[in-house]
Structure formats: structure tokens, C-alpha cells
Design a protein around this nucleic acid. Structure first.
Lengths: 136, 136, 136, 136
DNA sequence: GTGGTCTAGACCACC
DNA sequence: GTGGTCTAGACCACA
């Protein structure tokens, strides 16, 4: 019996119109796949060329995204073998996302307090957002 | 008896190291002063040259910040007269800050949900942040 | 029987908030008085000081406005005697305003044509405006 | 067969003598190209450096014009990629030009009425102008 | 190569 | 004095 082939990587469209740098959009999309469990440790990633073709971006943009992800310990690039999701990827990414979420929440509070937002308003706003994004 | 003059504007230090563009830091600092009521409608702002000297940035950088603030309706620049906080400044800035806070909260939720954060964790994190920044 | 005293000059408020330069606002306001017949040739104008006090602007701003009006032949300044509406003022101002109106209309047409406005749209817009400003 | 390339951008001469600020002249010229359909959504614009060279103005002046156009939603600037006419550009510019035309017409009427211009005179002047600028 | 930011300094119009 | 515009040139981030 051979290993089950992982489903092909399906990332959202990468576009300059979306705001941020292209390489950052790729980084975020891949982190999201890892955090939500669709990309498991050990899974091989597409080659630079394959992903560049799939996302319609330049090769060096993909290279930069992979560099960033390797720097953060999410993936491992092995010369000649290919690129793989690292073993600690899921935990690492999740704790990083967690920290990012807390940071955003911190920003929300400092900004809202400047505009005199009350505890109740914050609580209500949070409740609404959580409802809109139910836990998996 | 002498005329009451507004207390001298005291902005936090502006530094290239602090992340964003210098002019944006100035914009944010001034918006904060307005939102929190320390800078009231009608108050004269320092001249370009004065603020540039005080913050140790270029005159052009101050100009750019003032331009942005005038575009957003926070201040009014009058050639030959000076620059003043506009009448609707406080309300406008506060509602904009409110919207920005909600946006940040939205980001916190989408990011945290990717890392499987539960409703309880969000609520607890919010509670802590609100405690750290009590309402004025 | 003595000459009827002209009614005191009553100009709209002059304010930096209105957009243009202060001196220009004064020039326009006085031209309007002349064009509409409330200021007749020979009528004496307030002194620099009087008008500056009345409009709450600086003396040199009034000076600049009077200079401009004299340059255009609307008023005559006589050292020691005072300032008076010139004899040809009404006709001159009216023909100048006429020309300005035509110029604005020209601009309206070139601008609107760029946005593909039709003859009918222009005619209808003109009709509405004329209704809103009936002839005296 | 080679790819179709858009015809090179041909803007009228930009000159300090023409009245307004240089950057505003550039803004207006580009809006005109968009409004009249010669510049379609998605079309790439010349780079800052290229346009600065072509118009014989400073790079910064072009930058300022592009900034203004991006703020108004007419173009999109993408770091590293270039600058493009935005998707909603044509509609947006046309409705803005329309509004500007109505505003100019409003000014024409208020100014002309001060000089006692009659309905008939306005109508005749409009007729002449429309003849001089026939609809495309 | 592209656009994004910052600097130093000039000249002008307005008050 | 004020703000408004323009220039020449630098450095950085992105593709």
C-alpha cells in the first residue's frame, strides 16, 4: 500500500489589488493552511516553478515567500529533494497566530479607548464577530 | 490678566525606528490628541517650521502630515494665518477611530480563529486588555 | 436740503473658512454691491480702519482689496478725502461679471462634454439654476 | 504576432504659465483621458520617471499627481509593478466631471445674475458654447 | 526595473 | 510671519 497522496494545494488568489506585498500574501495563505490543519507536517509543497505558475506570480516572489516561511520554521527546503512542511509547523504557526490575534486585540482596545468606547461596546462587538466566525 | 493660551503641544517622540512612515506617526499622534480631547476645535497648531524643529523632522514631512489631516477634515490650513483644529474634528476622529478599532477586532478574531482560539479565550483576553486600559 | 445719507455698507461675513483669500472675498463682495446697484457711483466707502474693524480683518487686507478695486477702476482713492465708487463702476463691473459668467459657462461645457453630457442635460440644468436664481 | 500595446500616452503640454499647480494640470489631463475613453481601465500608465522625463517636470511632481489620482480612485499604484488605471475609473471620473460641470454652471448663473443677465442671454450663450463643443 | 519615503532648500502668495 | 508649490537627489521595499 502506498501513501495517500495529499490533496493538491489550493490557495486563494494572489493579487496586487489585495493590498499587501505578493510574497506576504503567499506566506499568509500557507500559514493559514497549516494553522487550520489542511497542510500537515511532512507534506511536500509545490516546487517554486509549479507554485509560481499556479499563482501567476514571478518565481522570485515564491522564492521570497518560501525563504520567509523557512526563516520562521514553518517549512524546510532540502536542495534537490523539495520543500516540506516542518514537524513543529502546526504548533508553531498556531502559537504565532495566537500572538498576532492578541496583538490585534490590543490595538483594537487602545484605538477604541481613544474614542471613548466602553467595556460594553467592546464586549458586544466581540460577541458579534465571534458569531460571524464560529469555531471549527 | 493675559489671554489664556492653549498648553503647548506635546507629542510623543517621532522616530524612523518606530515602524511606519514618519508622517503617519505625526498624523496618528495628532489624531490621538484630538480624539482624547486634549486638542479642541479651533486650537491653533504649531507652524510647519515650528513642528519640524520640535520633532526633528523635515519641514516637508510635517507638511505631508498636515496635508493628510486636512484631507481627512481634522484640521484646516489657512495660508498666511496658520493651521487650526477643525470644528468637526473631535467627532470625526472619534468615529473613525471607532471604526478602526472594530476593524482591528475583526482581524483579531479571524486570525485567532485560525489558531483555534475559543470564545472563552477571546473573552478573557479582551477582559485583560480592557483592565489594562481603563476608560477615561 | 442735504444729500440723503447712503445706507451703511453691509457686507457678508469675511472668513478664512470660505476658501479664497480674504482680500479677494472683500473685492468680490464690493463688486457684487456695485453690480446689483446697492452701491452707486460717487458713494463714499468706509475708511480702511473702519472697514477693517467692521470685517474683523487686518488693515493691510482691506488696503489690498481697495488697491485691487482701484486697479480695476471700480473705486477711486483720494488721499485725505476718502474712497469713492467711480463713475463708470456699475457698467464696468457688470460687463466684467458678464464676461466671468460666460467664462464659467464655457468651463461648464468643456467639463461636462468630457463626461458625455448631452445638450438636453445642459439645457435642463441651466433651466433649474435660472429658476433658483430669478432675475431681480 | 506581437501583443497589442496601448498607444503611448499623449498629454498636452504642462507649463507653470498655464495657471494652476503643475501636479493639478497632470491630474486634470489624465482625468480627461480617462473620461473621454482614451485611457481604459487596466491600462498601464508611464512610470514616475518616464512621465517626469516626458513632461519635463520633476519626479516628485508626477508622484504628487499620481497620489492624488490614486486617492480619488482613478488609478492604482503597485510597488514594483507599476501604475494602472483602476476598474471603476471611467464611471467615477465621469460622474465627478458631471458634478464639476454643474458646479461651474451654478457659478455662471450666480455671477451672471449679478450683472442682470436675462434668461434669454444665458440660453443663447449656452447654445453657442454647445455648438462650439459638439458631443462626441 | 517599479513605487514609497525622506531630506534640504528654493520661490511664491497671503496676512 | 504663515502655508503652497516645486526642485534635485537620496535610500528603501517590492517584483
Amino acid at each position: 500500500m502506498i501513501d495517500a497522496v495529499p490533496p493538491p494545494l489550493r490557495l486563494g488568489p494572489i493579487s496586487p489589488a489585495a493590498g499587501g506585498p505578493l510574497y506576504q500574501q503567499i506566506v499568509d495563505a500557507l500559514k493559514r493552511e497549516v494553522a487550520e490543519g489542511r497542510l500537515r507536517p511532512g507534506t511536500p509543497l509545490p516546487s517554486f516553478r509549479a507554485l509560481a505558475g499556479q499563482l501567476l506570480v514571478s518565481l522570485i516572489t515564491v522564492k521570497r515567500a518560501y525563504d520567509e516561511l523557512e526563516r520562521e520554521g514553518v517549512i524546510r527546503c532540502h536542495q534537490g529533494l523539495g520543500t516540506f512542511v516542518s514537524e513543529q509547523a502546526t504548533l508553531g504557526v498556531r502559537s504565532a497566530q495566537r500572538e498576532a490575534a492578541l496583538e490585534a486585540l490590543r490595538l483594537a482596545v487602545t484605538t477604541g479607548r481613544q474614542a471613548q468606547m466602553s467595556d460594553a461596546e467592546f464586549a458586544e462587538a466581540l460577541r458579534q464577530e465571534l458569531e460571524r466566525h464560529p469555531q471549527n
